[in-house]
Amino acid sequence: MSVNEFIRNFQLELENPDTPIGLETEYNKESYWDSLTAMAVNVMIEDNYGLDIDPEQITSFKNINELYSFIIENKK
């Protein structure tokens, strides 16, 4: 899956899927980010990449690029 596909899948987990997101978006500092969104993103990552990341760990990444890079490096 390309980074653009990942970004789109990430957006689809948000309350407003038209929220602008890019590689440098610090999603965990945005008003839309909460524990339920972290869980939804976790499920998306499990479904698309076969990787189970703790929602707290998802929140710990600086931006979309760091999260995506971690997933690509660790996917099954």
Rank of each mutant, 00 (worst) to 15 (best):
P55E: 01
L51W: 04
N16F: 09
S2L: 12
L14S: 12
E15I: 14
E30G: 04
E30C: 12
L67P: 02
F70T: 03
P55K: 02
D34V: 07
N63W: 09
D52Q: 09
L51M: 09
N74K: 13
K75R: 15
Y68V: 00
Y32F: 15
E73H: 03
P17G: 05
P17H: 07
N48F: 02
I58K: 02
Y27G: 08
E66D: 11
W33M: 08
D54V: 05
M1P: 14
I72F: 05
I21C: 06
G22S: 13
L23M: 14
F70I: 05
E56V: 10
F61P: 01
Y49L: 01
D18G: 15
I64M: 11
K75G: 01
T59H: 06
E46A: 05
E24T: 09
F70N: 05
S2H: 12
V41Q: 02
P17D: 10
N48T: 06
N48A: 01
L36G: 10
S31D: 11
E66S: 02
K76Q: 13
Q11L: 03
P20G: 03
A40R: 15
E46S: 09
V43P: 03
Q57E: 08
M1V: 10
E46N: 13
D34W: 13
M1Q: 10
S69R: 04
V43T: 15
N42K: 14
S2K: 14
N16W: 07
P20A: 10
T37A: 12
L23H: 06
E13P: 00
E30I: 03
L23Q: 15
S31M: 11
V43K: 11
Q57H: 13
M39P: 04
N74R: 11
E30Q: 14
V41A: 03
I45W: 00
K62M: 07
E30R: 12
E24C: 02
E66C: 01
N28V: 08
I7G: 05
A38G: 11
K76N: 09
E73V: 00
N28D: 09
Y68H: 08
S2Q: 09
F70K: 05
L36Y: 12
D54K: 12
N4G: 11
A38Y: 09
L36Q: 12
I7T: 12
E56H: 02
Y49I: 04
F61Q: 06
Q11V: 02
Y27C: 08
T37W: 04
G22H: 10
T25P: 04
M1I: 13
E24W: 03
I64G: 09
T19H: 04
P20M: 08
F61I: 05
N74V: 09
T37P: 00
N48Y: 03
Q57G: 05
D18P: 05
T59P: 02
D47L: 10
